[in-house]
Amino acid sequence: MSTTDLAPTPRARFEIAPQLGLAIIVGLLVVVFAWKQPGFVSSFNLFGMGRSLAVDVTVGFSQMAVLATGGMNLAVGSIGVCSVMFAGYLMQDLGLPVPLAFLLAVMLGGLLGWLNGFTIVRSGVNAFIVTLASANLYSGAMLILTKAQPINVLPPIVSSIGSYEILGYASPALVVALVIGLALYVFYRYSVPGKETLMAGANARAASMSGIAVSRSIILAHVLSGVLAGVAGLMVVARVGAAMPAVGGEDWLLPSFLAPVLGGTALAGGFVSVVGTFLGAMLVTVIRSGLLFVNISNFWLQLFLGLFLLAAVLAQRYRGLFRMRLT
């Protein structure tokens, strides 16, 4: 759960720091890039950045849902592309209405996530191994079934959604990402299943002894992750107006970890930061776009992202040590 609204106890103040620090960094970067290149804050660029940010945020939320349990989901991109191609098939080949096709595609994401969670719980095998295998399994099945051919005769409304500009600046996808973020905040902060997921992630044994169905929480987390991966995939479908087999896959792996980890979500489980994940994705998007504007080769992006990720992980470690001293 995000701690940005906790009472300002010494510990809470300490935990607010990562998100606040991240927000300041993002703000400073925006100012610097806008100062160097005014076009950075042009409506066209803000719209484009918002559209990319929406996907990065949703992919980050997808990974965050599983990190909450102390696990991980390496199949985020594979589930995303399965939803993408399934949505395309439903709309183009079966002629289903767009809302129904999108709904079924998201449900497929949830089903594939459920398969991951079920396998992990039943087999007792580490989430890393299970999702590594399922990532290849899902991608392979998708390539076999689609013959890697894009589906590009979709109803015009699909691409209209992707190119629609709210007030000339914002993408509908960004609004969807914000709504998802709000829902996740409520889920982890106020709902029983959300709290149980965090408790299961913090200490599975203690949670189990407290009567929490840890297995159910793990499966739920993977279903949620699958659903969010599906939503992210559909954002891309709307963005490009086609269902393409090149969407997602391994390309989503690093962004999926970057956003939550930069935002302060604990890799060990038990603590998530919805606001932080949003800011983490924002940092990546701003750097990526800003480097293009100041004419620094995008090859530097990898270096910057690596440095930020390392700093975030070290900060987490430092926070852990600090907490131990406080207690």
Partner: peptide
């Protein structure tokens, strides 16, 4: 593709 489209959008803004 995402990197290329971002590059194209950025160039247009510049």
């Amino acid at each position: 593709l995402e990197l290329q489209t971002e590059l194209m959008e950025s160039l247009a803004s510049q």
